[in-house]
């Protein structure tokens, strides 16, 4: 394994207020309250009641972050997320879901969302995630490095990852996770540390996004013909072992 260059992987402290956020939620009282709540903290917030309105808004002016309800009437939040990702909208997307929509939540992450929040949630929880995701988005945009680990070649600057020369099609968050794991070879990274490094969550958070995304990464690496590199260390976290080829 060769590290061509490294930069410290700590969340940047870039200010996030003033960022534009689009809240897509069909229930007007919720949408209205979330728009006002985020607005109170200095964000420039717009609301959309359905997927079509959201697409129209994104088309006019791309927001810095989307808060997206999974249960939209007509085109669902998952479909909207997929559509946005497929047209190259790579801003952070935070899904809102109900507790009984576990399957939908995972589908949302699979469709390219960065994280989800279970209703009912406190405004503080939403704010913390919004801030972290915005900071991370800016921080990763600024980093430049190339990491090589076994058959893996990760060009952080161009956001390109290859296995033995063949391209890996990764979502933004999958790419960041893989880059962090590859930059710390043979070092076990706990879930909290990964949430901090990849999602920018420097606060207590109740989520299983790390496990879900590690699962996606394993599947994609396996499909690309890479050996199994990401191990689970029970009770601790995950580790990438490049040398085991």
């Amino acid at each position: 394994m060769t590290v061509v260059s490294t930069t410290p992987n700590s969340p940047g402290a870039a200010p996030t207020s003033g960022a534009t956020i689009l809240v897509v939620e069909d229930d007007e009282p919720i949408r209205d309250a979330v728009v006002r709540g985020l607005g109170l903290h200095g964000y420039d917030v717009n609301g959309a009641g359905d997927a079509e309105a959201a697409l129209a808004t994104v088309g006019r002016r791309r927001p810095d972050l989307l808060v997206l309800d999974i249960g939209l009437p007509g085109m669902s939040g998952i479909e909207l997320c997929e559509r946005l990702r497929s047209v190259g909208v790579d801003v952070p997307i935070l899904m809102l879901s109900a507790r009984d929509q576990v399957g939908d939540r995972v589908a949302g992450l699979h469709a390219g969302a960065d994280d989800y929040l279970v209703k009912p949630f406190a405004l503080d929880e939403l704010l913390a995630r919004v801030q972290a995701l915005l900071r991370r988005a800016r921080a990763t945009a600024a980093s430049t490095e190339v990491v090589v680990a076994g058959p893996l070649w990760i060009d952080v600057d161009r956001r390109r990852a290859t296995v033995d020369g063949s391209h890996l099609d990764l979502s933004r968050r999958e790419f960041d996770l893989l880059a962090v794991l590859a930059a710390n070879p043979d070092i076990v990274l706990g879930r909290i540390r990964l949430l901090e490094l990849v999602w920018g969550y420097d606060f207590e958070v109740d989520t299983n996004v790390v496990d879900v995304f590690v699962g996606y990464l394993r599947r994609k690496l396996d499909a690309a013909g890479a050996p199994r590199m990401i191990d689970t260390v029970r009770g601790v976290g995950f580790v990438l072992r490049p040398g085991r080829v």
Partner: peptide, 9 residues
Amino acid sequence: RTPLQSALT
């Protein structure tokens, strides 16, 4: 849940 969320926010 929907009105609860709105009330909470």
